[in-house]
Every structure is written in structure tokens, then in C-alpha cells.
Amino acid sequence: MRVNLKFLGEVYVTLLVIVDPPGMVPVFLALTGTMPPRQRMKAGTQAVLLALGVIVGFAVAGQTLLDYLHVQLPALQGAGGLLLVLVALQLLTGKADETEQQGGTTNVALVPIGTPLLAGPGAIVATMLFVRRADGLAEYAVIGLGILLVMLTVWLVLRFSGGIVKLLRPAGIEVLTRIAGLLLAAIAVQLIADAVDAFVELYTAAYSG
């Protein structure tokens, strides 16, 4: 039991640091700040449920799926980075509000909040690595519990972020949107750079071997 608790703590802390709920709040508010409170709560719940489904899905069958499609993990990372670039440009140019009005709550909740922000390449890769390390059904259950606890933490953070909207008011949300766009652009560039670096290492090792 002691080993399981240690493993649970490792899974929880690792995924929590990668998902970064406090860092998610500015982006979440930038994308949902103009929504009524009920719609914002719905968007947060949908995003968390999608992220939970994606992470669990990759934990169960991620490696098999990637092998079948002949896709390597750096490619998944690069794709997530490119998707975030598009979202960042929308936030920086003020087109996010237009997209929100056209697409409704569900589109914003699914992309980019649910994936690739919550269920991003980092969380997916970390989960797949934990599954590889797991020894027996008990440790698989510990990984599942760790994922559930992380998603519950994220949901609570998003659930109570509505109070920030009341403090910021429309002008503050507008400023926050631009800042969130800049942060997202930086995250996107880092994801793409990491993917390129991983590809270089991969092919260098392949040719040298």
C-alpha cells in the first residue's frame, strides 16, 4: 500500500504540473469570459470530461494507435503546437469572440481547452510512460485514480474562476485575452521547438546506429 501511495503521488504531481491548472485560468477566462456563468461552467465541465477521455484513451491504447498510424510522439507534439498557434492568433487579433459566437460553448470547450491545453502532448506522453512502468492491475488502477484526481482539481479551479471575471470586468477581460494569446503563442512555439528537437535526436540516433 505504501508503494501504491507513493506511485499515486508521483502520477498526481507529475500530471498536475504538466496540466498547470493556475496557468489555465487566464486562457480559460479569455475564451469564456463573455459567456454567462452557466455556460462557462458547462464549458469547463465539457473540457475536463474530454481531457479525461483523451488521456485515459491514450493510456489504454495510445502506443498501439500511434504504431498503427506510423506516427511518432514528436509529431503529436508538433501538431498540438500548430493548433495552439491558430488559437493564439485568434486571441491576439480579437477574433476569438467571433469564433465563440459562431461555434458556441461546445467548440471552445473541446478545442483548445479540452485538447490540446488540458489533454496535451505532455500529459499524454507522461501517462503513456506511467503505463509502461506499471506492474500489475493495482498500479494501473493507481494511474487511473491519479488521472481522476488531477481532472477533479482542474475542474474545481475552472469552476471557481468565475469570480475573477466579476473583478476584471469587460476591459480587464480584453487585456487578459491579449496576454493569454501571447502566453499561448509562447507555449505553441515551445511545443514545436521541442518536437523538432526530438525529431533531430531521433533521426541522428537512427543514422548513427
Rank of each mutant, 00 (worst) to 15 (best):
A134Y: 03
G33A: 09
P37H: 01
V200S: 06
L89C: 02
A88W: 01
T64V: 15
T127G: 08
G53Y: 09
T64E: 12
G114Q: 11
W155S: 02
L16N: 05
P26I: 12
I55Q: 04
P116F: 10
V142T: 15
A171E: 15
I124D: 02
Q39C: 01
Y207N: 00
R132P: 04
G44W: 05
A185H: 04
A79K: 01
L117Q: 08
D97V: 15
P21L: 09
L5F: 13
L16W: 13
A193C: 09
V56I: 15
T64G: 01
R40T: 03
D194P: 00
A171K: 14
L76Y: 03
L110N: 08
L69E: 04
G9H: 06
L137Y: 07
G81H: 06
T93L: 13
L92Y: 10
V71E: 03
L84D: 08
V189N: 02
G33I: 10
L5D: 12
L183G: 04
L82H: 05
I113N: 02
T93E: 05
G104L: 08
I147Q: 08
L91I: 06
F160P: 00
A43V: 12
Q102P: 00
E139L: 07
G114F: 10
P22G: 08
A96Y: 00
Y68D: 00
I147L: 10
T93W: 03
L148Q: 01
L52S: 14
A198S: 15
A134P: 03
A185Y: 02
D97K: 14
L184K: 03
V125Q: 13
Q72P: 01
I147A: 02
F160D: 00
G62L: 10
L76F: 06
I124W: 05
L168T: 02
Y203V: 12
V48T: 12
T106M: 11
P74G: 02
T204N: 13
V11T: 06
V60G: 02
L168C: 05
V27P: 02
L183K: 06
V25K: 11
L183R: 07
Q39S: 14
A59Y: 07
L149I: 12
V175E: 10
A206M: 14
G44V: 05
L202N: 10
G9Q: 03
A109M: 05
V125H: 03
L76K: 09
A59L: 14
I55K: 04
A88S: 14
D20R: 03
L83K: 01
T32R: 09
P74S: 05
T127F: 02
P74H: 05
Q63V: 09
G57C: 09
P112M: 12
N107C: 07
T64A: 14
F160I: 09
L50S: 07
L82W: 04
W155K: 14
R2G: 11
P26L: 10
K166N: 11
V60I: 15
R133Y: 01
G209P: 05
L158M: 11
H70A: 15
V175L: 13
D97L: 15
L118V: 09
L168E: 03
G33S: 09
G62D: 07
G114T: 08
G209W: 07
L52Y: 07
L149C: 12
P37S: 04
I18M: 06
A198W: 00
L202A: 13
R38W: 04
I113P: 00
Q90M: 15
L8N: 09
L191K: 01
